[in-house]
C-alpha cells in the first residue's frame, strides 16, 4: 500500500496545479481587481450602494425566479404526461424536445426574434387577427421566453426520470383513500418528485442568472446582471465595478445552488 499511497500523492501535484491555475488564481485576481478601483474596498458593495445596479439585481432575480417557476410548472405537466402515457413516436418526441440543449444562447435569442420580433410569427398572427403587431422579443418578456425555452429540456428530462421512478401504487393508494386529482398532485406527486424539482429548478435558476448570449442577442439595453457586467468592463472600462458585480453574481447563484442542494438532500433522505 505505501507505494500506492505515494503514487496517489504524486497525482495530487497536477491536481493542485490545475486548481491553482484555473480556479484559485482567477478568483483571487477577480477579488483583487474589484478592490483596486478608485472607490477602494467600498466597490465590493457596489451592487447594493449603486441604485442602478441594485435595480438590475432585483430585475435579474425576479426574471430568473419567474422563468424558473414557469419552467418547472411546464416541466411538471409535460413530464407527467410523457411519464404516464405511452404512444407511438414518444421516444422521438422526447429526443426532439431536448434539442434546445444543443443551442448556444445566441441561437436561442435568434429564435425568440424569429418568433416574437418585429418580423416574427406571433406578430404576424396577432396582426392578421386584428390585435395589432405583438412584439416582445426585445424586452424582459423575450428574455423570459428564451430562458424558459432553454431550461425546459433539462428540467423536463430530470422530472421525467423522477416521475417514472415514482411508485404508481402511491397514487393509487391516495386515490383509494378518496383523494382528488389535485390532492394527489399536492400530497403524493409533488413531494415525490420534490428533490428533482429542487435540483432542476436550481440549475434553471443559475442558468438564467448567468445567461448572457440570449440577452446580448435580444437587446443591449436589457438590464440584467450579465449585461451590466459586460457594459461595465467593455464600454465603461470600469474593471473594478465589473469584478465586484461578477463576484456578487457568483456568490448569489452559488448560494442558491448550495441552499437547494442542502434542502433537496434532506428531502432525498426523507424519501428513502
Amino acid at each position: 500500500m505505501p507505494s500506492a499511497d505515494r503514487l496517489a500523492k504524486l497525482f495530487l501535484i497536477p491536481l493542485g496545479a490545475f486548481v491553482l491555475a484555473f480556479f484559485l488564481l482567477p478568483m483571487v485576481r477577480l477579488v483583487a481587481v474589484a478592490g483596486s478601483g478608485p472607490n477602494g474596498l467600498a466597490e465590493y458593495l457596489v451592487l447594493i450602494t449603486n441604485p442602478r445596479h441594485f435595480g438590475t439585481l432585483i430585475a435579474t432575480l425576479l426574471l430568473s425566479a419567474t422563468a424558473t417557476l414557469a419552467t418547472l410548472a411546464i416541466g411538471v405537466v409535460v413530464a407527467l404526461f410523457l411519464g404516464r402515457n405511452r404512444f407511438p413516436g414518444q421516444k422521438a418526441l422526447i429526443a426532439m424536445l431536448t434539442l434546445p440543449l444543443a443551442f448556444p444562447g445566441v441561437v436561442v435569442g435568434f429564435m425568440i426574434i424569429l418568433l416574437a420580433g418585429r418580423q416574427g410569427l406571433i406578430g404576424s398572427i396577432s396582426q392578421s387577427l386584428g390585435m395589432g403587431r405583438m412584439v416582445f422579443a426585445y424586452s424582459m418578456a423575450g428574455l423570459f421566453a428564451g430562458y424558459v425555452y432553454f431550461s425546459l429540456p433539462r428540467v423536463m428530462v430530470t422530472l421525467l426520470a423522477a416521475v417514472e421512478k415514482l411508485d404508481p401504487s402511491l397514487e393509487e393508494a391516495a386515490r383509494s383513500l378518496g383523494a382528488s386529482r389535485a390532492q394527489v398532485l399536492r400530497d403524493v406527486i409533488l413531494p415525490g418528485i420534490g428533490p428533482s424539482l429542487m435540483a432542476s429548478g436550481a440549475i434553471a435558476f443559475a442558468t438564467a442568472m448567468g445567461a448572457f448570449g440570449t440577452a446580448f442577442t435580444l437587446a443591449t439595453r436589457i438590464d440584467v446582471l450579465a449585461m451590466t457586467i459586460y457594459t461595465e468592463f467593455t464600454l465603461s472600462a470600469n474593471f473594478a465595478s465589473a469584478a465586484a458585480l461578477s463576484i456578487a453574481l457568483g456568490l448569489i447563484t452559488w448560494g442558491v445552488l448550495a441552499l437547494t442542494r442542502n434542502f433537496a438532500g434532506d428531502r432525498v433522505a426523507a424519501a428513502g
Binding site: 401504487s169 402511491l170 393509487e172 393508494a173 391516495a174 386515490r175 383509494s176 400530497d187 426523507a270 428513502g272
Partner: peptide
C-alpha cells in the same frame, strides 16, 4: 372511480407516503 367507491386498499409495496 376508485376515489368515490370508499374501498380500502393494501398494496404489495405498501405504498405508504414517505413524506408523512
Amino acid at each position: 372511480p376508485i376515489e368515490k367507491r370508499n374501498v380500502g386498499m393494501v398494496f404489495q409495496s405498501y405504498a405508504l407516503f414517505p413524506n408523512m
